[in-house]
Design a protein around this nucleic acid. Structure first.
Length: 775
DNA sequence: AAAGTGACTTGTCGTCATAGAC
DNA sequence: GTCTATGACGACAAGTCACTTT
């Protein structure tokens, strides 16, 4: 898949831009701005250990108080004023954080002293977390002492387990408080009441819930959390060591229907062949893929054939896949498709779980059906048979006091039932294609549990802001380190920061051959004098990343050194792997890992662009601004999509329409002239006659027509522009929803214009953010 | 130190319903 | 009313990263 050259929507003053990199795939990077111009200017602090603390506490405060007013109205940051919205990003990068800054200090208001610069101050950025309760502050400082100066990046870490408390409760409650917003009542978590008349869960729910402890009130919950032990699971510690739930009730999983033989025969060398149901089932899986690209891929066919042949037996009449004609089954399949299929069973019973007394949606309660493994890119296992999963493959995880779900397949039983509250999964099975991999069943994205961890992720990224300047100064300095490892770490960190590359774990031979930063090969990077690097590699999902960027001259030089004397298939960073890299990052800022940079850069970019680019205008215009910002983020993250098959045709059609409109415009102009001369209008091409109107009226029509044309051209442009860019992924995973919500509030854009129903549910935790929220 | 494993996040694509085009 | 382009959604593949085991 070819990557196209992209253009960014920024205006020209690069200085304000956040991160710099734009990409020009064709090797020219005219628009690449040197990172240096922005980021590195005055970064005075290289003191390594300035660390930071982070107050994770802020999580604990009630939401409302949590966001301290960035505008200084409150307590804390008096300095920040709303104006900062307009300030160039650069300034934002300027506040380095020093311990002092972050430390809750009595003098509060001045917290942010740091703005080192001059006028630039204001970045609202983090405000002192003063808002948290005094207690927590106290605790924090205590901790600090213990830990030395370092503070963790983690939004809520071990400091106090309860730091997320506030998160837990509120969300559910919050949501439920305004039901009206959510049209799908079922979608929102509710506190389960004693005798809920509702669905299937009821019986169990009742039971579980009934114990007093269950009635969850904020308080009770907190209390429990603080006594962290509560019921620790007896099993070996798993997960991250934090308790994920107290009570958990659910109904297990459901299985796809057993195979129903259709009896349609394939032809082997032209003759019908009898197949057993098992053989037929697999043949059908293959037959129905006829119109996909997989069908003709040699490896896919070979892998399929090997697995199918195991079912046929070596001596079967069918000896060669190429002699098989699956047309009869394919045709049968088309017929079946035409028939109305009964609406798929909803699985209401399995759809819900009750976690700590709150009813929550389950994400994927349906076990994956058997099929042929597709895989992405050149996956070595493409085409292999993915066998059916049975109850005896499934391990359930459920509350100790909850009833164990009945096995839905008569006569069979679950593999195991665990009661591990240190993990979030409800069930898992091993992936038949790669048995080391595990497939989990967990709550849906809209659940409070997922929402909390999402929020934590963004809080962590947000804190990176306080250290980024320092980190950049450090790696810049190390571009010239004499120690190769150190230099590689510096350059790798730089690339991860600047280009939002993934960490790049090692991969096995039984996986597609893709790379990330640490696994880049010499052949994936090319030095283009004087100081540009051309990247070309296959990343996650075998999506190609092609980009030529201008880099810091010293980094350029270092990359040249790393390449020297190696062959194309050698590792560029031969001294590096993700553990070393992350270990290093963690040293800079506790809790920091490579992926945090992606989140950070995506979110900060959105925040900055929205502030810079939003103009007065109607809602639609603002939405366009949002989409453009979203697009830039997607580009930086290399979120691509394949161009739809009909794209060309669609563009042509649009072009045709525009052409038609142009013709119409010509006619209108013509008639205007005639009207001015007092002649009557010509009749339309369709032969119908045209009303005689005044020149002014013609002018008006002409203006309207031109608007129409412009709009259509813009639409066409946008469509073409976005044909290879997927906006969704960054919206779902990288851009802090609070930025979006706050922007919508500030600019009176209905949030529904930006988030669809599932995003609204998923981001319920972000909806009450204050309009001044700054990432 | 490498390899394995466990838990969870991130990512693209296919399918389906439906709003909109004709 | 039928056709079709879109977007929502689900499916499930493929990453990240911590921690064990060898």
């Amino acid at each position: 898949m070819a990557t196209e050259t992209r253009h960014d929507g920024f205006s020209d003053d690069d200085d304000d831009k956040p991160i710099v990199f734009k990409r020009s795939d064709n090797g020219d990077s005219e628009d690449v701005r040197p990172l240096s111009s922005i980021i590195f200017r005055n970064s005075p602090l290289d003191k390594p250990s300035e660390i930071i603390k982070d107050e994770s506490d802020d999580d604990e405060a009630p939401i409302s108080s949590r966001f301290r007013n960035k505008n200084g109205n409150e307590v804390s940051g008096s300095k920040q004023d709303s104006t900062n919205e307009k300030k160039p990003l650069v300034k934002m990068f300027q506040n380095g954080s020093t311990l002092e800054n972050e430390r809750p200090s009595p003098k509060v208001s001045g917290k942010r002293l740091l703005e080192k610069g001059s006028s630039a101050d204001q970045s609202p950025v983090k405000k002192p977390k003063v808002s948290s309760s005094s207690t927590s502050v106290a605790m924090k400082s205590l901790k600090i002492v213990k830990q030395g100066d370092k503070r963790k990046l983690e939004a809520g870490n071990d400091d106090n387990d309860d730091d997320d408390d506030d998160d837990d409760v509120p969300i559910a409650k919050r949501i439920k408080s305004d039901t009206s917003k959510y049209k799908t009542p079922s979608a929102k978590p509710k506190v389960v009441k004693q005798s809920s008349t509702s669905s299937a869960t009821k019986s169990k729910v009742k039971r579980v819930v009934s114990p007093p402890s269950k009635t969850r009130s904020k308080k009770s919950k907190k209390v429990m959390n603080e006594s962290k032990f509560a019921k620790s699971s007896k099993t070996l510690p798993t997960g991250d060591g934090k308790k994920k739930w107290t009570t958990l009730v659910h109904n297990g999983v459901t299985f796809p229907p057993l195979y129903k033989p259709h009896g349609v025969q394939i032809l082997y060398k032209g003759k019908p062949v009898n197949l057993t149901p098992e053989q037929e089932e697999v043949a059908t899986m293959f037959a129905v893929m006829r119109e996909t690209d997989f069908y003709n891929k040699p490896l896919f066919r070979e892998n399929f054939w090997n697995d199918w042949r195991k079912l046929l037996g070596k001596t079967h009449e069918i000896q060669k896949l190429d002699d098989c004609d699956f047309t009869p089954i394919y045709d049968w399949h088309l017929e079946e498709k035409k028939k109305k299929k009964a609406p798929r069973e909803k699985g209401e019973k399995y759809m819900w779980a009750v976690v700590d007394g709150v009813k929550e949606k389950v994400g994927n309660f349906r076990v994956e059906p058997p099929g042929l493994f597709r895989g992405r890119g050149e996956h070595p296992k493409t085409g292999r048979l993915k066998k059916r999963i049975h109850p005896c493959d499934i391990t359930l995880n459920i509350g100790k006091d909850a009833p164990i779900p009945e096995c839905p397949i008569p006569g069979e039983r679950w593999k195991e039932v665990k009661h591990d509250n240190m993990v979030t999964w409800l069930a898992f099975w091993n992936d038949p294609i790669n048995p080391k991999r595990v497939k989990y069943v967990s709550l849906s994205a809209s659940s409070s549990q997922k929402g909390q961890s999402d929020k934590k992720k963004y809080e962590k990224a947000r804190k990176l802001k306080d250290h980024i300047e320092n980190i950049r100064a450090t790696y810049t300095k190390n571009f010239t380190a004499k120690d190769v490892s150190k230099r590689q770490i510096a350059v790798a960190t730089y690339l991860i920061d600047k280009l939002a590359l993934r960490a790049g774990n090692e991969k096995g031979d039984d996986e597609a051959d893709t790379v990330g930063c640490c696994t880049l090969k010499v052949g994936n990077v090319e030095c283009v004098p004087p100081n540009k690097i051309k990247f070309d590699f296959l990343g996650k999902d075998s999506i190609q990343y092609v980009n030529t960027v201008e880099v810091e001259p010293l980094a350029y030089k270092a990359i040249g050194q790393f390449r020297a004397g190696k062959s194309n298939s050698d590792d560029l960073f031969d001294e590096l792997d993700t553990s070393k890299l992350n270990a290093h990052l963690k040293e800079l800022v506790p809790g920091l890992t490579a992926k945090v940079f992606r989140t950070y850069n995506a979110s900060i970019m959105l925040d900055v662009m929205l502030r810079q680019e939003t103009r007065e205008g109607d809602v639609n215009q603002k939405v366009v601004v949002y989409q453009q910002a979203n697009k830039e983020v997607a580009i930086i993250c290399n979120h691509q999509r394949t161009v739809s098959k009909s794209h060309g045709a669609q563009i042509e059609r649009l072009a045709g329409k525009i052409e038609g409109l142009r013709e119409g415009l010509k006619a209108l102009k013509n008639n205007l002239e005639r009207a001015i001369k007092g002649k009557s209008p010509l009749e339309g091409s369709d032969g119908k006659k045209t009303r005689n109107i005044t020149p002014e009226a013609w002018e008006k029509k002409i203006a309207q027509q031109m608007m129409k044309i412009e709009k259509m051209e813009r639409d066409m442009q946008t469509k073409e522009d976005l044909k290879t860019v997927a906006l969704g992924t960054s919206k779902i995973n990288y851009m802090d929803p609070r930025i979006t919500v706050a922007w919508c509030k500030r600019h009176e854009v209905p949030i529904e214009k930006i988030f669809n129903k599932s995003l609204l549910e998923k981001f319920a935790w972000a909806m009450d953010v204050e309009p001044h929220f700054t990432f």
